[in-house]
Design a protein around this nucleic acid. Sequence first.
DNA 1: AATGAATGAGCCTTCATTCAT
DNA 2: GATGAATGAAGGCTCATTCAT
Lengths: 214, 214, 214, 214
Amino acid sequence: MKLASAPAPTGNRFERRRQRTRSELVTAATRVLARKGFHETKVTDIAAAADVGVGTFYLHFRDKEALFHAVVAETAARLKATVDAARERADGPVDQVLAANAAFCRFAEQNREVFKIVFGHAAAYDDVIRRAQALFAGDIEATVREGVASGAFAALPPAAVAQAVVGMATQMLSWWAEHEAVSIQTVHDTLSTMALRALCATPPTSPDKGVSDG
Amino acid sequence: MKLASAPAPTGNRFERRRQRTRSELVTAATRVLARKGFHETKVTDIAAAADVGVGTFYLHFRDKEALFHAVVAETAARLKATVDAARERADGPVDQVLAANAAFCRFAEQNREVFKIVFGHAAAYDDVIRRAQALFAGDIEATVREGVASGAFAALPPAAVAQAVVGMATQMLSWWAEHEAVSIQTVHDTLSTMALRALCATPPTSPDKGVSDG
Amino acid sequence: MKLASAPAPTGNRFERRRQRTRSELVTAATRVLARKGFHETKVTDIAAAADVGVGTFYLHFRDKEALFHAVVAETAARLKATVDAARERADGPVDQVLAANAAFCRFAEQNREVFKIVFGHAAAYDDVIRRAQALFAGDIEATVREGVASGAFAALPPAAVAQAVVGMATQMLSWWAEHEAVSIQTVHDTLSTMALRALCATPPTSPDKGVSDG
Amino acid sequence: MKLASAPAPTGNRFERRRQRTRSELVTAATRVLARKGFHETKVTDIAAAADVGVGTFYLHFRDKEALFHAVVAETAARLKATVDAARERADGPVDQVLAANAAFCRFAEQNREVFKIVFGHAAAYDDVIRRAQALFAGDIEATVREGVASGAFAALPPAAVAQAVVGMATQMLSWWAEHEAVSIQTVHDTLSTMALRALCATPPTSPDKGVSDG
DNA sequence: AATGAATGAGCCTTCATTCAT
DNA sequence: GATGAATGAAGGCTCATTCAT
C-alpha cells in the first residue's frame, strides 16, 4: 500500500494539515485557559477560539483534561529543556542556580500565558484566596521597607521581596502539609534561616541561633 | 410574632441550635474542601459530611461559593491576627520576620486542612501541574545537595530548600505575569540575589554581579 | 370535662385567638396573592406577612392550595350572596341584570385585591399574554372610537367598550374551546349579534343577517 | 471553519435539521401547555413530547419562559395579522366589528390549543377559580333563559350569552382594578348599557336611566 | 477529517412540609 | 398553640461527549 521508497506525499499532506489543526487548538486553548482557568474554560470556547467544530476537538484530544495535560506537559518539558540546557552550561551549584534562574525568568517572560497556567493560582473563585494572600504580602512588604530603611536589610525592592517570602513560606508549608516529608520544625528553621540570610544586610553571625531545631 | 411578656429564651435556643449547625457545616466543609478542592466538592458532599439535609446548607449559606468565602476569609483573618500579634511583640524587622515565620508555621501546623485550602494548590486536575512543579523541585534539590556537599552552600535540608526556591520563583513570576508591577529584570535580580544569599555558605561579595540579564 | 351549663370561657378565648390568627393569615394571603399570584407566593411570604411562624400556617390550613381555596371560595360565596340578594330584590330579567351588574361592580370596587385573584389574569409570566391581549383591545378601541365619531355607534367610552368586547369574545371562545357545548357557529353568531346590538346607534333591523359564517 | 471551496449544502442541511427540531419542540410544547398550563408543564415533558433530549430544548430556547414567549408571541402575531386583514377588507366600523369577530372565531376554531394558551384561564390550581366563575355563569344563564322565555330578551342561546356577560363584566372590572383608567362609575354604566342593549328584545328607550350608580 | 446538533447524567437550588421544643 | 430549623423531593439548567452526515 505504501511505497517505502518515497514518503507518501499524500500522507504527509494530511498529516501536516492534522498537525496544523492540532496546534491551532493548543494555541487557542492556551489563550483561553490562561484567561479563564480550567473549569471556566468550556470545550466549546476552545473550539470556537480555534475556529473549529466541537467534534474536531475530540479528533485530536481524548477529552478536555487531555488537552490540559498536553498544554501543561508540553510547557513543562519545554521549560525544563531550557533550564537544563542553561544548567549544563554552568559550572558548579552557584552558577547553576544563577543560570537556572535566568532561564526560568526568560521563559516566564516569553511565555506569560502558559506560565500562568502552570505556575499561577487559578480561576475565578480564587479571588478570595488571592485577596487573602495579598493581605500577608502587604504586611511583609511594609516590614521589608522598614528594614531596608533602617539598614537592617539589604537594599532590595520590597514588593518583589514580599512575594518571594510569601512564595517561600506558602510553598514550603503546603508541601509539608501535603507530604510531611520533614518535620515542621525543620521547615520552620529552614524558612527562617533562608529568609534572614536573604534579607539581612549583615547576616546573623550564627544564623542557626534562635532557630534551633527540635 | 414575638411575645414580649416572656424573656425570650426561645430566641436563644433557636439561635444556639442554628449556630451549632452552621459550625458543623463549616467544619465538614473544611474537611471536604481540603481533600477535594472547590470544584470537586459538591454541596451534597458537604451536607452529607455535616450530616444534615441539603436544604439546610442553603439555610446557612447563599451558595457553595459563599461557604468557601466564609471559610477562607475567616481563616485568613484568624491567621492574620495571630501573625500580627506575634509581630507586635517583636522588636525591629529581623525579629518581626522571625516572629511572623514562627506564627505562620505554628498556624499551618495547627490548621493543616484549612491551610491547604487557602495556600495550597487545589483540585484534582492539578495533578499534572503538581507533577510539573515537582520536576523542577527535584532538579533544584539535586543542585542544593551537591552545593551543600561541596561546601558551596550552607548546610540546609535540600528538599525543603528546593520547595522554598520553587515557591520564591513561581510566586514572584506569577505575580509579575499578573501585575507587571516591576520589570522582569528586577524580578530576576531580586530572585537571584535572594537565592544566592539564602543558600551560599559565603555569600558572594557583590551578589548583583553576574545576575544581570541578557 | 366541659360544663354544658356555661360555655367554657377558656375554650372561647382560645377559639377567639385561633380565629384571629386564621383571619390574619387570610388577610395577609389575599394581599400577597393579589400582588404576586399563586405560584410566586411562597408559604413563607404569607407567614411573614401575617407575622406568624411558618408552622402556624399549617395549623390553620392543610396546605398552600387549601388557603387559596379558602380565599377564593369565601370570596365567591360572599360575592354570590351579594349578587343574589340584589337579584332577589329585582323584578324581572332586565332589572335582575341591572341589579346584578351593580352588585358585581360594587363588590369589585370594595374588594379589588380579592377580585383580581378570582377574576383577574394571574401572575408574572402572564406579561406576554397581557401584552398579546392588549394588542387586540387597542385595535378594538380604535374601531369603536371611529364608530362613535361617525355616529354609527352609540356614545360609549371606547377604552371600556374595548375591554368589554375582548372579554366577551375571549370568554365565549375559551368556553367553547374547553367544552364545545354549542357549535362554533352559534358562538360566532351570538357574539356578533350581541356586539352589534350593544354598540350600534341603530341596531341592525335583522341583526342575524350578515353574521352567517364563511 | 467554513470551506469556501464548496457550495455549502452542509450549512443548509444543518439549518434544516435545526429548524425541524425547533418546530417539533414548538408543536409539542403547544400541546402540553394547552393541557397543563405553564407551571405544570416541565421542560422534561416538552422534551419528551417532542421526542428529544432535555439538552436539545436548551439548544433552541434560553429557558422555559422563552419558549412560552415564542409560542404566545407567534400566535398573537398570527392572529393579529388575520384579524387585521379581515378588518382591512371591511367597510366602516360595523363591518369591521363583524369581520374581526369572524376572523377571531375562525382562528379560535382552527387553533384551539394555542388559543387556550393565550386567552384561556390557565393551570390546574385554577379549578377553584373556574368553579367560582361557573357559579355566576349559571345564574346569568338562568336569568337569560327566563328573559328569553318572557320575551323581554332577544332569542339568543342562554349558555353562550352567559359566558359573554361574564366575560364582559370580569374583563372590564379586572382591567379597571389593574389600571383604574376610568372611574368605576363609567365601567358600571358602560357595562349595564351594553348588556341591556345586547340582550333586550326592545332596547330601553333611554338605556342610561336606571343605570345610575348608588 | 470535519462538523455541530443531539444527548443526558449530574449538579445546584428552591420551597412545601414536618417536627422537636 | 406557636415556632422556625431542618428536610429532601423535584425541577431547571449546563456542558462534556457522541455520532450521523
